[in-house]
Design a protein around this nucleic acid. Structure first.
Length: 752
DNA sequence: GGTTAGGGTTCG
C-alpha cells in the first residue's frame, strides 16, 4: 500500500532504547486526509480535533539520526513508506490509536523548514485552542489565557523547577497551571498579572474538583505583554516556534477582554516613594550592588529613581564584600533600598549582576528601630524578601526595554541633570574617590545611577575628567579622561576590524577571505606537478587517481622521529580545504609548492603556517623571497615565531582596528581603538581570528556599548582615556585620538 | 517515560 502523509512536527526527542541504536519519537499533527483503511472510519474534519489530531511516529537507526539533525519543531514533514501499528501508549497520551514506524527499506521523508511553510501562507497546520471552560480531563490541549496569578519558578523536591500560575480567558473560567522543567529558561517569562500566555501540549487533570493544566511530553509556552497597545512580541527561549497573524489576533482579543475586566487596572509595582511601613508590595528597580551576608541571606542594594518618604535603613558591609559600585551618595539621599533576600531566593539573587533591572514580588517593608531608640524618632524601613513562595514571593531580572522601566529611567536622568545644574559638577553624585573604595578593586570606582558605566581606566592618571569640547580645544600631544557614549563605530561588520600588521614596515593589510586563499592554493597546484626533493627532508607521496594529483608530505630529517604534534610538516599538492583538515591533527603545517623540484613557499598572500585553527601570515615586503633549508636545529618547541624565523618569514601580527564616534553633551570626537584593543576586549587578536567564540564575545561587547536600534539615551556611558597626537599626511598635520588604557567591564563579556 | 506541586505571607 502506498500512503503519503504530510504532517507538522509538534515535538520530538532522541532516545536510546534497549538494544536499538536509536529511536526517535515524534508527535505530529496530521492535516492531510489519510487513507480511511489505515485509520479511523471517521471523516477527519468531523473527528474530535483535540483527541486524534496527533500521532506518534517512530524512527529507527540512521534515519532517526539524520532526521534529528535536520528537523525542528514546527516543520512540515512528508512521510512515506511507513508501517502502521497499534500504539501501546494510546491510553496514556490520548493520541491516535495507531503509530507509524519508519523502519522498512521503503521509509523515506522530506523535511520542509517551518519558515518556508509559513511563508507559503499555509494555514492548514494551525493549532486548535480550547476555551478554558471547555476543557475535559485527561486530554492533551493547547490553550491561551491571561495570567491572574503566578509564581516565579522554584525548585521542587524532584528534578525540576516548578512554575505555578492561574489563567483565565473570555469564558471567565479560572484554571491553575503547573509547569515543570529542569531548565529555568524554558519556564514562561511572566513579569506581571495580565500577561498573556500560550501553552501547547499541556495535559488536563482534575485536582480538588478543579480543572488544572500540567506540562506533558513536548509542551511549550510563549508569553506576551498584556498591555493593550504594546507590541505583540513573543517572549520565549524556544529556538523555533510558530506564531502567525491568527495568534496575534488571539493575543489582541485577550488583551482587549482583560482591559474590560480591569485585570490590568492597578500598577504592576509600587514605587519606593509610595511604600508605607508593613506593606507587602512588588518593586521594579535597578540593582546597584550586592553582598553575601551568610549562606541563607543576601543583601541587594537597589534603587528605582524615587525617594522614599520614610527614612531607609542602611546596611553597611565591608567594601571588599560588595559586588558592584558603592552607593554612599545614594544612601545619603535616601535613594537606596537595602533588601535582604532569604533562603530559597538566594539562588536567584546569586546570579544577578549590578546594573540589571529587577522585579521583586511580595517584598515586605519592615519598620526597624534600633534598640533603645526613642519612639519620636521616625522608624527606618528595611526590606525583606522572606523565604518561601507564598503570594508569588520571588524575584527575577527583567529586560531593559520593559515598559515599566520608563519611569525609573526618566527619574534617573532627571535626578542626574538636577544634580548637574545645582552642583555645577557631577562629582559628588557621579564620582566616588578611589581612596574611599579600599584596595580590592582594580577598576575605576566611578559610580553612576543610570545608565551604568561599562568601562574603566587602567592608566593610573589622576587627570580630571574633561568634556569632548575641551579635548578638541587642547593642543596635542596630551592625555585626557572623558566620559562619552558611542554614537557609531566602524567597521559595522566586526570581522573587518581584524587586520594584519607588519611590525617591521608598519604595513596594515586586510585578512584575506577563504575564497582568495583557495585561489592562491589552486595556482600553486597548477604550477607544481612534480614533488619537490630536498636533501634535508624525508618525503612521502600519495598519488590519488581520484584527485588526479599527488599529495606530498615533507618532514625535516631532524624531526622525523618526533610525534606529529611537534613536527613541522610541509605539505605539497593540497587545496586549502585539505590543508585545514590535515592541520587539525598536526600542530604546524606549512603549505609549499615545487619549483623545478625545489621547495618554495606559497605566495605570501596566503597563510604560510597553519596551527590547528590558527593561520599565520608573512609580510611580502619584509620576508626573504625564498628559503634553502629551514633552520631547525636548537628549536625545542615550534611556535609561529620559530617557524617564521626558520623559514625567513617576517611574521605579521593580527591587530584590531576600530573607529569610534564618541559623543557627550558638548560634542563628538572620532577616536581609534587599536594599540590597546586587546586590553579593551580582554582578548588577543590571534584568538579572535581563530575562534568564533571570541568573535561572538567582541560582538556582544559592541552590542552592549551600542545596542542595535538604540537611541542615544539608552546607551551606556564609557569612561575612557584618550591620547591626542598628530600625524603628517600629504604635508598636512592632522590631530588623531586613540582610546588607550581602557577596559570593558567583565559583566559585558557574557551575553545577557 | 513522566516525580515534583496542587497559590493564600516571615519571623531574619
Amino acid at each position: 500500500m502506498s500512503v503519503l502523509l504530510f504532517v507538522h512536527v509538534k515535538a520530538f526527542s532522541l532516545l536510546s532504547f534497549f538494544s536499538l541504536p536509536l529511536w526517535f519519537s515524534l508527535i505530529i499533527l496530521c492535516y492531510f486526509s489519510f487513507s480511511p483503511l489505515c485509520f479511523s472510519e471517521e471523516d477527519p474534519k468531523k473527528s474530535s480535533a483535540s483527541q486524534h489530531a496527533s500521532i506518534n511516529v517512530i524512527f529507527f537507526g540512521t534515519l532517526a539520526k539524520d532526521f534529528s539533525r535536520s528537523v525542528s519543531q514546527g516543520d512540515m514533514v512528508l512521510l512515506a513508506g511507513f508501517t502502521i501499528s497499534k500504539s501501546p501508549t494510546e491510553q496514556t497520551d490520548r493520541l491516535h490509536p495507531c503509530h507509524l514506524e519508519m523502519s522498512g527499506p521503503d521509509a523515506c521523508l522530506c523535511v520542509c523548514s517551518s519558515t518556508v511553510s509559513s511563508s507559503s501562507g499555509s494555514s492548514a497546520h494551525r493549532n486548535i485552542y480550547v476555551p478554558l471552560n471547555e476543557l475535559k480531563p485527561r486530554r492533551i490541549v493547547n490553550v491561551y489565557g491571561v495570567v491572574t496569578f503566578f509564581k516565579q519558578p522554584f525548585p521542587t523536591k524532584g528534578t525540576d523547577y516548578c512554575s505555578t500560575l492561574k489563567i483565565t480567558d473570555q469564558s471567565n473560567a479560572k484554571v491553575g497551571c503547573t509547569i515543570f522543567s529542569e531548565r529555568l529558561e524554558d519556564h514562561p517569562k511572566i513579569f506581571r498579572i495580565g500577561d498573556v500566555i500560550r501553552l501547547h501540549r499541556v495535559k488536563t487533570q482534575m485536582f480538588n474538583g478543579s480543572m488544572t493544566l500540567l506540562t506533558s511530553l513536548g509542551w511549550s509556552t510563549v508569553t506576551f505583554d498584556g498591555m493593550l497597545d504594546s507590541p505583540v512580541e513573543p517572549r520565549t527561549s524556544s529556538r523555533t516556534f510558530h506564531f502567525d497573524e491568527a495568534d496575534k489576533r488571539v493575543v489582541e482579543a485577550l488583551r482587549q477582554w482583560a482591559s474590560s475586566q480591569s485585570l490590568l487596572a492597578s500598577e504592576p509595582t509600587v514605587p519606593l516613594s509610595s511604600v508605607q511601613p508593613k506593606m507587602y508590595f512588588d518593586l521594579t528597580c535597578q540593582l546597584l550592588a550586592k553582598a553575601c551576608m551568610d549562606s541563607r541571606c543576601m543583601l541587594l542594594k537597589v534603587w528605582d529613581g524615587t525617594k522614599c518618604e520614610h527614612p531607609l535603613i542602611n546596611v553597611t558591609v565591608a567594601p571588599d564584600a560588595l559586588e558592584g559600585e558603592p552607593t554612599n551618595s545614594q544612601d545619603r539621599e535616601n535613594l537606596t533600598a537595602n533588601i535582604l533576600v532569604y533562603d530559597n531566593h538566594v539562588e536567584v539573587a546569586r546570579t544577578l549582576k549590578p546594573g540589571m533591572f529587577l522585579r521583586l514580588y511580595n517584598l515586605h517593608a519592615v519598620p526597624q528601630r534600633a534598640p533603645g531608640q526613642p519612639h519620636d524618632v521616625p522608624c527606618h524601613l528595611g526590606f525583606h524578601l522572606h523565604g518561601g513562595t507564598s503570594y508569588g514571593r520571588g524575584l527575577c531580572s527583567i529586560p531593559s526595554d520593559n515598559p515599566d522601566l520608563l519611569t525609573l529611567k526618566s527619574q534617573a536622568e532627571k535626578l542626574a541633570s538636577e544634580k548637574e545644574v545645582n552642583d555645577g559638577t557631577l562629582l559628588e553624585v557621579w564620582y566616588t574617590p578611589p581612596e574611599a573604595i579600599g584596595k580590592g578593586l582594580k577598576r575605576n570606582p566611578r559610580l553612576t545611577f543610570f545608565p551604568f558605566v561599562y568601562s574603566g581606566l587602567t592608566c593610573g592618571h589622576t587627570l580630571q575628567q574633561r568634556s569632548l569640547a575641551h579635548v578638541k580645544r587642547c593642543t596635542p600631544p596630551a592625555f585626557h579622561h572623558v566620559c562619552a557614549q558611542v554614537k557609531s563605530y566602524k567597521p559595522q561588520n566586526l570581522y573587518q576590524c581584524l587586520k594584519l600588521f607588519c611590525p617591521q614596515c608598519t604595513t596594515i593589510k586586510e585578512v584575506p577571505d577563504d575564497e582568495f586563499i583557495a585561489q592562491v592554493f589552486q595556482e600553486a597546484l597548477r604550477g607544481s606537478c612534480q614533488p619537490c626533493s630536498e636533501h634535508w627532508a624525508v618525503t612521502s607521496s600519495v598519488d590519488s587517481i581520484q584527485l588526479d594529483r599527488a599529495i606530498t608530505m615533507h618532514v625535516s630529517c631532524d624531526m622525523v622521529l618526533e610525534n606529529t604534534q611537534s613536527q613541522l610538516l610541509f605539505l605539497q599538492g593540497v587545496t586549502l580545504d585539505e590543508t585545514c583538515v590535515i592541520s587539525a591533527a598536526h600542530k604546524n603545517v606549512v603549505p609549499v609548492r615545487s619549483e623545478e623540484r625545489r621547495m618554495r613557499l606559497l605566495d605570501l598572500s596566503a597563510p604560510f603556517l597553519f596551527c590547528e585553527r590558527k593561520r599565520y601570515y608573512g609580510c611580502k615586503q619584509c620576508s626573504q623571497s625564498s628559503f634553502v633549508e629551514p633552520e631547525v636545529s636548537g628549536v625545542e618547541v615550534w611556535d609561529e615565531h620559530n617557524v617564521a624565523k626558520a623559514l625567513g618569514v617576517q611574521l605579521m601580527q593580527y591587530v584590531l582596528l576600530l573607529k569610534f564616534e564618541l559623543e557627550d553633551e558638548t560634542g563628538t570626537v572620532e577616536a581609534l581603538l587599536w594599540e590597546d584593543a586587546e586590553r579593551f576586549f580582554h582578548a588577543s587578536s590571534a584568538d579572535i581570528a581563530a575562534s568564533q567564540e571570541m568573535q561572538d564575545k567582541v560582538q556582544t561587547i559592541m552590542d552592549r556599548l551600542q545596542p542595535p536600534g538604540s537611541s542615544m539615551a539608552e546607551r551606556p556611558w564609557l569612561e575612557l582615556c584618550l591620547i591626542a597626537y598628530t600625524v603628517e599626511e600629504d604635508g598636512r598635520t592632522q590631530v588623531c585620538y586613540q582610546i588607550t588604557n581602557t577596559e570593558t567591564r567583565e559583566d559585558l563579556w557574557a551575553r545577557p
